[in-house]
């Protein structure tokens, strides 16, 4: 047998290192972003107390006399718009996924699923545009408001944007439920609807929860559509028909005009840090749930 040359051994090692480097790069970038957020965000608290930052509802960093840096309104607006979007997107998404996985004719499914996935590719600025010219006036008309740029408008847009994620991953989860469960249920003399509700969906539950969490992660971080369609009022919203400004929109609007290395500048990074932690927690939960799902109970 021929012995392996030194060169080929070296080549193999080099390839190994190349792929290792690629893998590690993602982690380096993540750590870099996190460090940057910490470095630029933490100086906020030299002037503003953490307590004020996290508990005050007043966000007014450009006032002459009385600057305030409370993010409660912004966090609340973000959560309001996100939860609103889920209320609308989750039932619709799961119903659509169940239809695709269980009811739709294979040919119909071949057409529908890619279409749903294309929906994910629509630029958020286009969705925001639709929010201003289409959804806004409709909301104003239906609820008799002076304008339709408010929290519920943002919720609807984010719901539309979260739908593809929710549908696609839920559909995978529902399709993965073993055929034997369905057969056992049908053989006991239940109809297909009953089987779907009592056997298939519960068996796919962890996958569906993960889908919802991923959709939620997308909704929390979305900026452009909510910036355009929610009216941009950084006040504490009284109802879903009030204009709001989310954390992401605040950063996007203010960072372009803020003088560097001021408390205002730092505070925007601090908002980014809080947002990062929020999406991190959501992703972590969805990951844990998916992991459990992968192990099959």
């Amino acid at each position: 047998m021929q012995k392996r040359g030194k060169l080929s051994k070296f080549k193999e090692k080099a390839i190994e290192w190349f792929f290792f480097g690629n893998g590690i790069l993602a982690i380096i970038i993540l750590i870099g972003i996190f460090t940057l957020l910490l470095k630029e965000g933490l100086p906020t608290f030299q002037e503003v107390s953490i307590k004020e930052f996290l508990t005050s509802t007043d966000w007014n960093p450009t006032s002459y006399s009385n600057r305030s840096y409370g993010i409660v309104s912004l966090v609340y607006s973000t959560l309001l718009v996100t939860v609103g979007s889920l209320i609308f997107a989750v039932p619709l998404g799961i119903a659509c996924a169940a239809y695709l996985a269980e009811v739709a004719h294979p040919r119909m499914r071949e057409i529908l699923k890619p279409t749903v996935e294309i929906l994910a590719g629509i630029p958020s600025v286009v969705i925001g545009f639709l929010g201003i010219v289409l959804v806004g006036p409709m909301i104003a008309k239906v609820f008799n408001l002076s304008n339709g740029l408010n929290a519920i408008n943002g919720s609807i847009l984010l719901g539309v944007m979260a739908l593809p994620t929710i549908i696609s991953i839920s559909e995978d989860a529902i399709s993965a439920v073993p055929e034997e469960y369905k057969q056992a249920s049908l053989a006991l003399g239940t109809n297909e609807w009953h089987t779907l509700i009592t056997v298939t969906l519960p068996a796919a539950l962890s996958g569906i929860i993960a889908a919802v969490m991923l959709g939620m992660g997308r909704a929390i971080g979305e900026t452009m559509a909510v910036l355009m369609a929610t009216g941009n009022a950084p006040a504490f919203p009284e109802s879903i028909f009030d204009s709001v400004r989310t954390m992401t929109a605040t950063i996007a609007v203010e960072l372009g005009e803020v003088p560097y290395n001021t408390t205002h500048y730092y505070s925007l990074f601090a908002i980014g840090l809080v947002l990062f932690l929020m999406t991190f927690v959501v992703n972590l939960i969805s990951d844990l749930v998916l992991h459990k799902y992968g192990e099959g109970e």
Partner: peptide, 25 residues
């Protein structure tokens, strides 16, 4: 009624497996 080749209980409790049919009806 039917019993399948591979045991295929639902991923539910023992009680709920047996009660599934009667409940459905």
């Amino acid at each position: 009624g039917m019993v399948f080749q591979d045991p295929n209980p639902f991923p539910k409790s023992i009680y709920d497996n047996v009660a599934y049919g009667p409940k459905a009806h």
